[in-house]
Design a protein around this nucleic acid. Structure first.
Length: 803
DNA sequence: AGCACGCCGACT
DNA sequence: GTCGGCGTGCTC
């Protein structure tokens, strides 16, 4: 008998390996790698993925696979292989890797039930009544009615038993439809021979004959010829029509039409950029392109035409976009060009809708998947290109297990399919741009805007100056004037408030001095407890000063503001302005995001006020002013990427102004206007920023000069947490390569979450073969404590955030 | 993760 | 003497 190696759906260290099962003869040809099965595991039943079929096992007493869960593999061979790779690269469980590649609807659902056995003998009267009409009882009901004692006796007697049911969370949506059971000639004859009193049945047949359709939906029949259930039923019973089931898709775009677009003529620059991509497609060569183009330089058109070529060759494409920019505008462009060949996968869809879009890919009914991070796992089998738009976006990194970066997965998949990856951004991540400069990636610059429109003029307002002038409001006089001007001219404004950076950094309102750690050049975090400052990178501490160490001003304090406050303030100073506020609160309901943007696009408001989510992708012709209320907030986060993120954000936001006929202006308010990330964003000078930031990174041994790994430990007990972390750090220091730097342990930037204390330590390395095995060893060593005690250890290789 | 098995304290 | 507490170890 053949044997299947199965990875079971039990995410634990001790079960993170394949278990062998016998394949029953009737399934010997059906069960192939990638198929999900249900297997007995100890006393229960669990779902598992078949990863291999062999003929021998080291285990002698094998159990049989109890059920088949798929008829076609849920994961292709390539995705199984990719899962293995993910496991190694991110140190996650195999099962977690597999599950990450499938839509949430395909996760297994477990239910425990109590069933009658065949040898049902006498039962106690109260239970007998319960099982009078039911074959079984759910475990939850039994629990709720406190029946366990009585049930246990019956189980001992053998009249009842416990069964484990495994099903899938999401279901395919199916509809009943009718099909003629005979050819149309026979149908015609039957219709004529219909008895007179069967008028409705005759009408149904006449309609079917007239329409010449072989598949008739029941709702259609009911609407068109007023058919009733009984007349349909009798036609089916007579064998004239047959009933069938058909899978239908929940269509998230049902009520939307997309304007068909064609390839546009490319500018010279675009042509120069696309040529090497097309070469690579044609040659079947894997290559990574870094398409570095200013906002409005027409990156999307290049993607579209490259994808068009791929699809003409009968291959498939994946386009990743950041979660938040999956606004209708982006979907429109792809749907408009490729119509029904597109599947869209993003968080705005329901679980069922996502599953249906995924099914379209699996069934090869579409050739293009557009979506957020997880769309990188689209189950295509003949990929011709992968595009990652806004490559620098942090949402491409998953923060939960498996902690993968979509860019790495994209490159890995593209290697297997020998196809190109196109990374696009106006503000590439330092890592990617450095690789492009080194020649690892192929750099494709787009320096001109398609409409030759100049980039908007950016004014930086020094908020310290405003304060000196006696303006204590959150709007500088410059911004206020500009706002007033747009109202008069009936033009629109986007106001951006960066709420990230809520963590209290300490800054002097007079000179803009921000207190930084002497060892790390990272801003220190204010701690209410003890009124002191801490660095979360090296654990350095300092007392909270009462006067600014730089200028001795007393106006030194910590910072933070919200959109609601801004809205109130706006209502006070510009009562006639109509404001739409977009933040987590106003966009939490489904479709709210799109609706608000639609309203703004229709000119129903003068000002769009929002957080991160309005930073990208928006393109409204009437917007001529963009205001950034506080450019600094992010700059002082305890994050070595703070400057990079600030630069990216400011550049991104600035790009929202004056994209069409009207020219635009940008006002950036800042307490640190001289910081290079702000100054260089003003000049739209990425290259300058890159060089400056690379110096900083080199000096402080951060990526791209070093790789990072972070070990996080958490436990309800503070002492336990720090001592475990200390032990791990010591172990790593003693065993890692001497060139590898281990920093910490320190308390995490958020030292306690949900009553668990958190400690971390950072590892900076260039090349260290010992690292992964050592980290595995650490996990192994603490495995027991993690299972029993409340200890948790997590490892993030190449973290994007250190929170 | 679940679940059974097994070894100690407080009850009929 | 038995019921049930949760520490320990296993799941093909």
């Amino acid at each position: 008998m053949k044997i299947a190696r199965v990875v079971v759906d039990v995410p634990a260290m001790q079960t993170d390996r394949p278990f062998d099962y016998l394949i029953p003869d009737q399934w010997k040809d059906v069960i192939v790698p990638g198929i999900r099965v249900i297997v007995p595991f100890g006393p229960r039943k669990v779902q598992g993925f078949v990863i291999e079929v062999t003929s021998a096992s080291e285990v002698s007493k094998l159990k049989k696979i109890s059920e088949l869960f798929d008829l076609t593999p849920a994961l292709t061979d390539e995705l199984l292989e990719l899962g293995k790779w993910l496991t190694e690269k991110t140190l996650c469980f195999q099962i977690s890797a597999f599950q990450a590649m499938l839509p949430a609807a395909m996760k297994a659902k477990y239910e425990k039930r109590i069933c009658l056995t065949r040898s049902s003998g006498e039962m106690s009267p109260e239970l007998a009544a319960l099982f009078e009409n039911n074959q079984d009882l759910s475990w939850k009901d039994a629990e709720a009615h406190n029946l366990f004692a009585a049930l246990q006796k019956e189980i001992k007697k053998g009249t009842l038993e416990v069964v484990y049911q495994v099903s899938q969370k999401g279901k395919q949506k199916k509809v009943r439809y009718l099909t003629p059971a005979a050819d149309f000639e026979t149908l015609k004859r039957t219709a004529e021979e219909m008895p007179a009193q069967a008028g409705r049945q005759k009408a149904v047949l006449d309609y079917i004959i007239a329409s010449q359709k072989s598949e008739i939906s029941i709702s259609d029949l009911k609407a068109r010829v007023n058919a009733s259930d009984s007349s349909i039923k009798s036609l089916v019973q007579k064998g004239i029509l047959a009933e069938k089931w058909m899978e239908i898709y929940r269509d998230p775009f049902e009520h939307r039409t997309f304007k068909q677009t064609k390839n546009m003529a490319l500018t010279n620059e675009q042509q120069t950029a696309i040529a090497p991509i097309l070469d690579s497609i044609e040659a079947g060569r894997h290559e990574v392109f870094m398409m570095y183009g200013v906002t409005g330089s027409g990156k999307t058109e290049v993607y579209l035409q490259a994808i068009d070529r791929v699809m003409k060759e009968g291959k498939e494409a994946i386009v990743l976009v950041p979660e938040i920019s999956l606004t209708p505008q982006m979907v429109d462009r792809f749907k408009g060009r490729f119509g029904s060949k597109v599947a869209v996968l993003h968080s705005g869809l329901s679980t069922g809708e996502k599953y249906d879009e995924w099914r379209k890919i699996q069934r090869k009914e579409v050739q293009l998947a557009v979506g957020a991070r997880s769309a990188i796992f689209a189950p295509f089998e003949n990929l011709g290109i992968i595009v990652i738009d806004e490559e620098h976006e942090s949402s491409y990194k998953q923060e939960e297990n498996p902690k993968y970066h979509a860019r790495d997965v994209a490159i890995r998949r593209a290697e297997s399919y020998r196809c190109p990856v196109v990374l696009g951004s106006a503000t590439p991540s330092l890592e990617s741009f450095a690789r492009a400069i080194k020649g690892v990636y192929h750099l494709l610059p787009l320096r001109e805007r398609v409409n030759s429109r100049a980039l908007p003029e950016v004014n930086i307002v020094d908020m310290r100056e405003e304060l000196r002038k006696g303006n204590r409001s959150m709007f500088s006089s410059d911004l206020f004037e500009q706002l007033q001007l747009r109202l008069d001219r009936k033009e629109q404004t986007v106001l951006f408030l960066n709420r990230r950076g809520f963590s209290a950094f300490v800054m002097c309102r007079d000179c803009g001095y921000v207190i930084q750690c002497p060892n790390c050049d990272i801003s220190m975090t204010y701690h209410r407890q003890g009124n002191k400052l801490k660095c979360h990178y090296c654990a350095h501490e300092a007392p909270m000063p009462s006067v600014c160490p730089e200028c001795s001003s007393e106006h030194i304090r910590f910072f933070g503001t919200g959109t609601q406050k801004v809205e109130e303030e706006l209502a006070k100073v510009l009562p006639e302005a109509r404001v739409i506020r977009m933040d987590v609160d106003t966009t939490s309901r489904k479709g709210a995001h799109e609706r608000l943007l639609g309203q703004f696009g229709d000119g129903k408001a003068d000002i769009l006020l929002g957080t991160q989510m309005i930073a990208k992708g928006l393109d409204f012709p009437n917007v001529t002013l963009v205001g950034v209320l506080a450019a600094d907030t992010m700059l002082h986060l305890p994050d070595f990427r703070a400057a990079e993120k600030t630069f990216q954000l400011l550049t991104q936001v600035s790009g929202r102004a004056g994209r069409h006929e009207l020219s635009g202006e940008v006002v950036i308010q800042s307490y640190t206007p001289d910081h290079y990330s702000i100054q260089l964003a003003k000049d739209h000078h990425f290259d300058g920023f890159y060089e400056r930031e690379m110096m900083e990174r080199k000096q402080h041994a951060y990526p791209p000069f070093y790789y990072l790994a972070v070990v996080n430990v958490s436990h309800p007990d503070l002492l336990k947490t720090s001592s475990v972390m200390e032990n791990i750090a010591q172990f790593l220091i003693q065993n890692l390569d001497p060139h590898t730097k281990v920093l910490g342990p320190v308390a995490s930037p958020i030292p306690r979450i949900k009553n668990r204390y958190r400690y971390q330590c950072m590892i900076k390395y260039k090349r260290d073969e010992k690292l992964i095995p050592l980290l595995k060893k650490v996990m192994d060593r603490y495995q027991q404590e993690m299972a029993r005690d409340e200890l948790a250890i997590s490892i993030d290789l190449n973290p994007t955030t250190l929170m």
